[in-house]
Design a protein around this nucleic acid. Sequence first.
DNA 1: TCTGGGGTCCTAGGACCC
DNA 2: TCTGGGGTCCTAGGACCC
Length: 421
Amino acid sequence: MMYALADCNNFYASCERVFDPKLVNKPVIVLSNNDGCVVARSQEAKQVGIQMGQPVFECRDIIRSHAVIVRSSNYALYEDMSRRVVSAILHFIPDVEIYSIDEAFCDLAPMAGRDFDKLCREIRSAVLQWTGIPVSIGIGSTKTLAKIANRVAKRDASTDAVYRFPCDVNESRRVLSETRVEDVWGIGRRWGRRFRQLGVQSALDLAQMPPSIVRSHFNVTAMQTGMELAGVRCHELEAAPAPRRTLVRSRSFGEAVKRWDEMYQAIASHATRAAEKLRLEGGVAGRLSVFIQTNRFRQDQPQHCVSGSCELMPSTNTTPVLVEHASSIGRQLWKPGHAYKKAGVMLSEITFGEMQGALFSSRDDAHDARLMEVLDRINMTMGSGTLHPAATGRHQRTGFMRQEHCSPRYTTRWSELPKVI
DNA sequence: TCTGGGGTCCTAGGACCC
DNA sequence: TCTGGGGTCCTAGGACCC
């Protein structure tokens, strides 16, 4: 049994590069929504000292002095590129788990007898040739070891971006001892600190700690991570994604919101977008929550971070129903005199397939379903947001968002195709 | 001045029941 | 006045991931 983990290098920055060769060999960063934080960095940007997750305003000087190229995030582009990378991998391997927008686990078991190292090099070069995206591939007998191998593939140039976790005991101990415990997949900063207090510094230390001890200090998740490092498989490949349980739509405001009518529009627009997504997936939600938050970095200002929820009986995905509930909850949460920085809507208790009707429903479910179908079809063909509830106002697309450095949606909008001059 | 968005899982503790 | 024990269910909060 063997897993491979294919991980796109600096994915968002690489996507930007595919369509704009000017960016090649230059420091490039991609920003989060609202142009707030750095969420991707090219190799060159890492080298000049820009940190992952760093607020942009903190690295203005580096950006200026090293002529770092800045892009707002363009998820339409990244999601499409991600699909292309996955279909390239599927060309070689049938059992693939899409783990995130830039990572996929592959089950190598059906490839038994083949030279895994050679196979992964073929995959890497095909993905690069067909999509323009460089990937690194780590191979290991558990997912956690494949992750470790992937780190080595990324950091050690001599691996040429493909690395197999060693079978040799001494060699594997060396690799584990060179991985800090907080860098292990599933162990973050907090747990890393606690492990260090217990004398566990490296992945090797964690692998050698008795599972029951790990469990008693942390929980079963940490215990499984330790076991996986020791070669005991705890996580299988999950080729079919588990049905989602929750769906959130939220945004920070470019400028703090102080008026209820603005907040109302934002909440209505989040509810609308959540409902669209839920219908697209064919689910209905049994509970709706709304949250509003002030700016936690401004402790000098009055803080108000609250949430409220209500049961949806019957479960639904009908936009007007969700908008109505969301705004009424929002209204109850709203406290005048605060500068709100973020708002969101969460749908939970999501179910798929047949739904249970309410005994005393006043709504005509069949009528709602037809109405939503027409709405979705129009928005699908004429562009998202063509038809939207009046409550969302004019800002239903961006929700007051700042995006000053956005690249075109090269692959998903005819009008934004790259031009060859 | 400016600080992302969207998920999952686990556990502790309270409510409630018998 | 004295005031049990064990089970389930739910939720909030904390940790992790990308």
